[in-house]
Simulated scan of single mutants.
Amino acid sequence: MQAKLDKSDCMFLISDEKLNQFQQMIDELDLFTLVLPFVEESYQRSIWILDIWYSISNEEINRISNPENTMIYPYRNSILGIIKTLPIKRYIQLALYENERLAFLCAIYIYNELDDFISKKMAIKEEVKENFDALKKYSNKSLRPFFDSKYIEYENYPKKLAMLQNTVVNELHEIHKKYEIPLSWTFEKAIDDASKVYEAVFGLINDWGGRVP
């Protein structure tokens, strides 16, 4: 069953129209979601791709962060912060602002490549791998209920979950510092691969004026 995404889990304050647009693309471009299906068991992954799609297809001045979710999802927020620093070729970036299909494909490829790269680096140290795997056990659900006041009435503040995310975020920062150039290459490869797929299926990106000198 396809994951029903909740915009309140997004790292940005997005409209119902934008969320519906994204959900419609999942249906329209289902051929490209076979590798990364948008199903209930991978709820967090689907939200990740929604965040990346929104981030790369809207200029920063038009994006409004969800401040509450920076506390609830510090790991995802940190990944988006890294993505923000990675360069995109100018003609591709301009195309992404105007072409939601291209942005959708790029978001899938970016998620897949970066998740694979970071997962491999997290696995180098056994203790880090254990923490990373423990965080991934939450991949099928929203984390917001753990921080809801009704939950906290019955359970203590989700200290273990917060500490787990903090540990993984610290390791992510170390990976970013140590592997900044390979990480940039991985990101560039994801954009290039997605662009090639787009051009093979839908035509050249510059056919509609996205390319600039």
Rank of each mutant, 00 (worst) to 15 (best):
M163Y: 04
N112Q: 13
A190H: 01
I108D: 05
S142N: 01
P87L: 05
D115T: 02
K177G: 10
H173Y: 11
L94G: 02
W185Y: 09
N131R: 10
A123H: 13
G203F: 02
D148L: 02
I191K: 07
I88A: 04
E199W: 10
K177R: 13
D148G: 00
G203P: 02
A107W: 07
F146R: 06
I152D: 00
K150S: 11
N170Y: 01
I181K: 07
D116A: 11
K89A: 07
I108H: 09
K177P: 02
T167I: 06
H176W: 07
Y179L: 06
H173K: 12
S195R: 08
E100Q: 10
Y111I: 03
V197R: 12
A107E: 09
L143M: 04
K136Q: 13
E174A: 10
L183Y: 07
L102W: 07
K160M: 00
D193L: 06
K159D: 05
Y97A: 06
N156Y: 05
Q165P: 03
I118H: 11
Y198C: 09
P87V: 04
A162G: 05
L102R: 11
F104Q: 12
D193S: 10
D148M: 03
A103P: 02
Y198H: 09
I181R: 09
V168A: 00
Y97V: 04
E174T: 12
R101V: 08
F132D: 10
F146G: 02
L94E: 10
L164N: 05
Y111D: 13
L143H: 03
K129L: 15
W185C: 03
K121H: 15
Y179P: 03
S184M: 11
E130Q: 15
K120Y: 13
K136F: 04
K160H: 02
F147Q: 00
V128H: 07
A134C: 02
Y154D: 01
E126N: 08
A103I: 01
S119E: 15
N156W: 04
Y179C: 01
